[in-house]
Design a protein around this nucleic acid. Structure first.
Lengths: 348, 348
DNA sequence: TTGAAAGCGCTACCAT
DNA sequence: ATGGTAGCGCTTTCAA
């Protein structure tokens, strides 16, 4: 192992000077700096992170805590965070803590402690109180993405507003029987997101005088989840003409289900999502676009600022979701009657 | 900050004894051990990873390098690795290095150095030589998953065999016009996987005397990629009756495309995948099941063994993929003629 | 501008 | 079984 002492010796300077020259945070004669840098290079010198950490008190590591990495939204945020951290030369320590698993308990108990990381980005963590207590113990700045982050900074979209827009879009097209598909109380890392979106849907329905028609079909926020729920909803007697998916995955599942049932989208049923998932385009899905990678990047910016200056007050960054109209939605009066529906009488 | 000295003082012992009592790696009287543990607990003591690392030379951190985290296979391996590491109390440092990006270059140049991690798991890294040279510099054990890992341990399935099985399945059903869908030379982290799978397909075709019918439609290994490629392949004059998808994502894209074109799966075209993706069931996809989470776990086991005993020889773990027959495949003579096909004359 | 030396918090060796 | 102590490799005063 090559130490900074070796570099110093080769360059003919002291350890102190070598350190200064390499870190660049202090004045060193240009000539000596060059000599030191060359020496370091020729020896393939790499500083020991442990020693640096011990001496400076900084780990140059950022923790990222999230319920899962295998859903689109989370993977995108993670990639955004990663890209931003790499740019700053910081390491990313990942903790996947699916609610209700022993791993999550272990992570909260053993890993969320100070001195492992300079800061934490908590994605989609809807923590019960004792869990937040644990997070506090890391004694480093925390920034949340989605979820709830009492007393910390937060990056998120306005979920209520997004769902309201989606619902209003359907309503403006003349739809009256609009169902809200997906969302469950125990959904990992998204319970309050779903609550807010359902609220937005309800609000739009109520504003249109359709409060009595509010209908929620719960489902896991996945494509298969949306598929199964849509099979139920669309197979029922009182089939809706519009579906607001809690997210694109659910909406896509609904589209696939509709097609399997022989229904045309948007001919027989209009569907919207929220996300602008990578598959949204291929399904011509009308949706509200959010940019999870950008949220990841924003979280890093916020976090680094607070690490730099801990006195900074926690802030909330609310990004807006933009409506993207594709062709999974259609005006009700342009729609055709679905086979076997109760309006079969109007049919072709 | 509470140091081990504080714990020792409170417990009325020396730092040395406190350290022994807490790490448990040395004999300490049960009574004193208990006292120390209680003291540590009451003070909320957490050891400084930097200090431990400096003193022991172990970081208790494992690096994970992969091209992307947003494709199913990779996210699953990652979750498998994460779960296994948590169990051992090790931290996971994630590096997403998409080929061809500046981030990748930066990661290989600045992050892949010794003293940051005790070992590395490289997933789907098909490194050009200079990149592998860099990896060697971390001077710690490396285990590969998929990809190529010259001189290191590797965990993977036999891709050639898997594709051969898939192709043989179609062949056994009587299909003759079987096309291989997906795979591209520049596919991030999977070029050689795709090469091997294509080889398996070719081998099966050739063995069946269909060497002349071998046909490859390249596409990105994603659902939209498979969709687009399948639209082309199925829209062409010489439409195949069987499709071997390079992976489930491509196969699913093909199924969606077929349905959009008004073709029945498996009535008009049979489709197989490789993976057993989480959506496979919902699409009734016949596929070869591999367990990426298990591969992640296996990689951790292999890596920890080599960290424990560096003299251990690199080994290759080859997991087998199991054929799962669902209903995306059908015997050719049970199939129906597709609309607008060249066999339209036999049609209903 | 440079060098000497004192820690950072912990473990592990050597005593006892 | 326990305590004293010498580092681990780096940064950062303080002096020169």
């Amino acid at each position: 192992m090559v130490r900074i002492a070796d570099v110093a010796e080769l360059a003919g300077v002291s350890k102190a000077t070598a350190s200064r020259a390499l870190s660049g945070r202090d004045h060193v004669a240009e000539a000596t700096r060059k000599r030191v840098v060359e020496a370091a290079e020729s020896l393939q010198y790499a500083p020991s992170t442990a020693a640096v950490g011990l001496a400076t008190g900084r780990t140059r590591r950022i923790g990222v805590l999230m319920p899962t990495v295998s859903r689109w939204f989370f993977s995108q945020v993670l990639e955004g965070v990663q890209a931003a951290l790499v740019k700053h030369g910081l390491d990313l320590m990942l903790y996947c803590a699916l609610p209700g698993t022993p791993a999550r308990e272990r992570i909260f108990r053993d890993f969320m402690r100070r001195k492992r990381m300079d800061g934490l980005i908590a994605i989609g963590i809807e923590s019960s109180d004792p869990e937040w207590e644990r997070l506090r113990q890391i004694d480093a700045p925390i920034v949340g993405v989605v979820g709830t982050t009492p007393g910390s900074s937060l990056v998120a979209i306005d979920d209520t507003h997004a769902a309201m827009r989606a619902t209003e879009h359907l309503l403006a097209l003349g739809h009256r029987e609009v169902v809200f598909l997906g969302g469950e109380a125990r959904d990992p890392g998204a319970a309050n997101v779903h609550r807010d979106r359902f609220t937005g849907y309800t609000r739009a329905m109520t504003a249109a005088g359709l409060g009595a028609s509010v209908r929620h079909v719960p489902a896991p926020s996945t494509v298969p989840g949306g598929y199964a729920a849509a099979v139920d909803a669309l197979g029922s007697q009182d089939r809706p003409t519009g579906i607001v998916g809690v997210c694109d995955e659910v909406a896509i599942g609904a589209i696939i289900a509709a097609r399997r049932l022989g229904l045309l989208v948007p001919g027989h049923v209009s569907v919207t999502g929220i996300d602008d998932h990578e598959y949204a385009e291929m399904f011509s899905l009308t949706t509200l676009s959010q940019k999870p990678r950008a949220q990841g990047r924003a979280a890093v910016d916020l976090l680094l600022a607070r690490i730099e200056d801990p006195s900074l007050a926690p802030s909330t960054t609310s990004l807006k979701a933009r409506l993207i109209v594709r062709s999974s939605t259609l005006a009700l009066d342009a729609s055709v009657a679905a086979p076997g529906t109760r309006d079969g009488s109007h049919g072709p």
